[in-house]
Design a binder for these strands. Structure first.
Length: 905
RNA sequence: GGGUGUAUAGCUCAGUUGGUUAGAGCGCUGCGUUCACAUCGCAGAGGUCCGUGGUUCAAAUCCACGUACACCCACCA
């Protein structure tokens, strides 16, 4: 056997192991050995194709790989399917930025087709980087099924879904006030807004001398588009409700009706609101309620339209504001100016201030009823085929009925709250990069190919195939220039990756609904909700059984990682410095669902130390047995230590298995338990004892078997967490074997054994005494002290007794003059030990007194507790028994201290 | 304005359904190390479990109120 180096250097093995695993083909569940009936599927949340993976992705990958590897070892067809997201707006903005930087060009300079080629090239490069990073993380992911949200197969899924929704009248085209991003020149959804707090001036003024109600606004320039004044129906202006005014306002002729609306906050501003239906969401809704006309005064480039009137026509929004403020002052209409802070909505990707505008867009109606189409092989409970439902109700039902679990469950409340306030989903985007909307307009029927003509077209052609001519008149057609919101295709992800729209696809039948979705808690609405929506609609199935949401990764001080703080942790750097296994452990252990994880580098270093510990434990075992062989069944224990370690292993195995199996994955605790067992139990105790047992010819064989068995079982249990170091070590057991497909150990039957635990207590006690009395190594610890606290010397096996003696009595050969002697009987041997001369009797008495007093207090407390009738009556029997046992233990301890005190005085 | 989360050792965090004398890692202090491992071992110090009140035989754990921090949603005329 080639000798293992003293330290584990991750870098030397990882790439080769990853390659061997990948080439084995076992990442593909169809190629797994044995007959496997149960399946377990996880679809990777596709990283954006815009760049590289950050530490947040690493958390996601680590957690998923642990679960996927575990389930594979459990004998399931375990599928983990990778992919990337085209991330329409993010990618387009990024490529445009690069284009501007490198060539000083805009996308319009290139034209749609050439620009898209650029984007494709950029994305291909990015995807390669992402693939590389996923591999570095040690992910056992099935590359043969890799998908991309914008590839051919996914495009067909998108078109199919679009058409079905259109035919069900869930998708419609409508003129609505939407969030317009003047910089990105596109509409964006409510969820893509980011609110920024800014200083603004609140102007209070009258529209004209004849209008009695003053209003307040931070956006005077929009007031040229006002069509009403809204007041509270019970407020101070109520007597004006119903009156109408015609005013000349800053070069525009306004016709204003006073309306009463409950939405008005009497306490804000003047208690009256100038209603601008075209440029405010709230106003638009109010306008709809009161049948008010809508006047668009701002265009797509944030410039004033002709309808804005003489004074400001053609100006930018900023200029218009200044002009109108000046006009108000000139005409003596301004009542006051006030500095306030307000939240401005900006576009998440471009950072530009959003301009609400009325636009013709495509929407998904979340409140419209349609006939539910139930799945045959995984139907949703509580719904019948053909039942009238709405998308909103589907979203609510699946989670409320527990068919989709959100972990941690407190996010369910947030989810329902979001649904309650959900408005129709605007799915069209004026971007070039993305799924082109599968809608065509007939040039002849629509009377022209201009954008205006398309808008007029009442009966667009919706098709999953490319349309080249009008089915009615055979004339030329033109496709809708818009693309779809990136989350539309992302919503289909769990099934578009498995072969849908081919409903008979084997993968779809086998792996859908998937078992688990693991993702960041920040995209609950963006994505998780939309997958539930799409899957229930398209398939009549839930997309996954559980959504596990992890938190954000922050730096060691709990700050968000950002470029400006220069505290970004690049997973690849960490892998290089500490090894993949350590990085994975640091991300899995200590992270709880939904909570943010602070990650100081020292943490990762700590886990690097642990990988090395595991390495050396195994190395010790392999170097100290006569032959390294596989040991799969629990060997017969001979000594107390043997029984103890096997019992502990059985307990840890059971607990870890349960924690990995549970739907509420307690990965963190499972990992911690394993680490404690590995380090504190196996390495610190059993191996130390084994060193002695290996020298005993009666115990040698069994000890070797147990060392091999425990270490090999540990490698298996650790493998999901640390695929690399475990695999490297496993090669020493089975040169060509892959832990990847080793069977997870069966439940172990060994019963727990307490005898050795007591030995541990004795040794610990001796160490404590040694420290307390500052007794140097190789000098005696008074056996009186030991035996006073230890009543089971006789039960100890010779070997263990030896161990204890080595700890305490290595001394027998030391004889110092003037020392006091103590006699203790150990089994049938009488041992004479001297008291170390260093004991300060006074201090010792004080210490014992204080210790005795503490225990005595506790005993009194405990006695009182047990005398309490209410306690005995109310507490469960085992609790009372437990308390009684505690009392007994405390009494024994108290008596022991008393005896020691008596001996000294 | 509405909601959620967090608050436990110097730091980062565990702590299952209330039930031993509240734990781990890192850091710190002391001692040790040619015998698997200094990426090591042994020991130690370090806690008003944010505060106040309540429920209970019993509260870090449940309830109420308060404080601080983080986040989400809505609004911002």
């Amino acid at each position: 056997m080639p000798e293992l180096p003293k330290a584990y250097v991750a870098e030397e093995y990882e790439d080769a192991i990853a390659k061997t695993e990948r080439l084995s083909g076992f990442y593909n569940p169809d190629q797994l050995p044995g007959s496997r009936e149960k399946t377990f599927a996880v679809i990777l949340p596709p990283p954006n194709a815009t760049g590289t993976l950050h530490i947040g992705h690493a958390v996601m990958l680590a957690i998923q790989d642990v679960v996927v590897r575990f389930q594979r070892m459990r004998g399931k067809k375990s599928l983990w399917l990778p992919g990337t997201d085209h991330a329409a707006i993010a990618t387009q903005v990024k490529v445009e930025k690069l284009l501007a930087q490198e060539e000083h060009k805009t996308r319009h300079d290139l034209g749609r087709e050439a620009f898209l080629k650029r984007v494709d090239a950029f994305v291909e490069k990015s995807r390669a980087t992402i693939r590389h990073q996923i591999e570095k993380m040690g992910c056992s992911i099935d590359w043969s099924r890799e998908a991309f949200t914008l590839d051919e197969a996914r495009n067909l899924a998108v078109r199919t879904c679009f058409k079905r929704m259109y035919d069900d009248r869930l998708i419609y085209r409508g003129h609505r006030v939407i969030n317009w991003d003047p910089k990105g020149q596109t509409v964006i959804s409510d969820d893509e807004l980011v609110y920024e707090e800014r200083q603004a001036t609140l102007y209070t003024f009258h529209y004209g001398k004849d209008v009695p109600i003053p209003i307040a606004t931070t956006r005077p320039e929009t007031k040229v588009g006002d069509t009403a004044i809204a007041v509270h129906p019970k407020g101070r202006w109520k007597k004006y409700i119903g009156r109408e005014y015609d005013v000349e306002f800053a070069g525009a002729s306004l016709h204003l009706r006073v309306i009463g609306d409950e939405q008005i906050d009497e306490t804000f501003g003047t208690g009256a609101l100038g209603v601008t239906p075209a440029h405010s969401m709230v106003d638009a809704e109010m306008a709809q309620r009161h049948m008010l006309p809508m006047v668009q005064v701002i265009d797509e480039h944030a410039q004033m339209t002709d309808a804005a009137g003489e004074l400001v026509r053609g100006m930018s929004v900023q200029d218009a504001r200044e002009h109108i403020v000046a006009w108000l002052k000139e005409n003596d209409l301004m009542l006051g100016e006030q500095e306030i802070t307000q939240n401005v909505s900006t576009a998440e990707r471009t950072g530009e201030v959003i301009e609400p505008l009325p636009k013709l867009q495509w929407f998904i109606d979340v409140n419209k009823e349609f006939a539910f189409s139930q799945s045959k092989h995984a139907p949703i409970r509580g719904l019948k085929n053909g039942k009238k439902v709405t998308l909103k109700r589907l979203l609510q039902h699946t989670v409320k009925s527990g068919q989709v679990g959100i972990i941690p469950d407190r996010f369910e409340a947030t989810y329902f709250h979001w649904i309650d306030h959900l408005r129709d989903w605007c799915i069209s985007r004026q971007l070039w990069y993305g799924h082109r909307i599968p809608v065509w307009y007939c040039v002849a029927c629509g009377k022209g190919a201009s954008e205006e003509a398309m808008k007029r077209c009442k009966e667009p052609i919706v098709s999953t195939e490319n349309v080249t001519s009008c089915p009615h008149c055979g004339g030329a057609v033109k496709q809708d220039p818009d693309t779809l919101d990136t989350w539309f295709s992302a919503g289909l992800w769990t099934f578009s990756t498995l072969g849908w729209p081919d409903e008979s696809a084997l993968d779809l039948q086998t792996y859908h609904p998937t078992a688990l979705l693991e993702t960041g808690r920040d995209i609950l609405f963006f994505w998780v909700a939309r997958m539930i929506l799409m899957s229930t609609y398209c398939l009549g199935e839930v997309p996954f059984r559980y959504a596990y949401l992890h938190g954000l990764v922050r730096d060691g001080q709990g700050r968000k990682m950002s470029k400006s703080l220069d505290n970004i942790i690049d997973p690849l750097d960490m892998i290089k410095a500490y090894g993949t296994d350590a990085v994975r452990l640091s991300l899995v252990i200590g992270s709880t669902p939904g909570n943010d994880l602070n990650l100081p580098k020292e943490r990762i270093a700590g886990f690097r130390n642990f990988t090395n510990k595991l390495w050396n434990i195994t190395r010790f075992v392999f170097m100290n047995v006569r032959e390294v062989v596989r040991v799969d069944v629990s060997p017969k224990p001979v000594t107390a230590a043997d029984r103890w370690i096997l019992g502990r292993l059985a307990a840890v195995h059971a607990s870890v298995t349960a924690k990995l199996e549970e739907p509420v994955f307690a990965l963190s605790q499972a990992g911690e338990e394993l680490r404690d067992f590995t380090w504190s139990d196996f390495a610190d105790w059993y191996i130390e004892v084994a060193k002695g047992q290996l020298k005993d010819e009666h115990q040698m064989s069994s000890t070797e078997q147990i060392l091999l068995y425990v270490s090999q079982t540990l490698l298996k249990l650790w493998h999901p967490f640390m695929p690399f170091v475990t695999q490297r070590l496993w090669q020493e057991v089975d040169e060509d074997g892959l832990l990847l497909v080793e069977a997870w150990p069966d439940a172990l039957e060994t019963k727990p054994d307490e005898a050795f635990s007591r030995v541990k207590d004795v040794v610990t006690m001796i160490r404590n005494l040694r420290a307390t009395y500052r007794v140097p190594e190789r000098t005696a610890v008074p056996v009186t002290l030991i035996s006073a606290q230890c009543d089971f010397w006789k039960d100890m096996e010779p070997m263990i007794r030896t161990l204890v003696l080595v700890e305490s009595l290595s001394v027998c050969d030391v004889a110092e003059s003037g020392a006091q002697y103590a006699v203790a009987s150990l089994g049938d041997t009488e041992v004479r030990v001297h008291l170390a001369g260093a004991i300060d009797v006074k201090a010792e008495i004080a210490r014992l007194m204080s210790a005795w007093q503490d225990v005595e207090d506790y005993v009194k407390q405990q006695e009182k507790k047990l005398k309490n009738k209410a306690f005995v009556k109310a507490a469960p029997v085992e609790v009372v028994d437990g308390e009684r046992r505690k009392l007994d233990e405390a009494c024994a301890k108290r008596d022991a201290y008393r005896a020691q005190l008596d001996a000294l005085t």
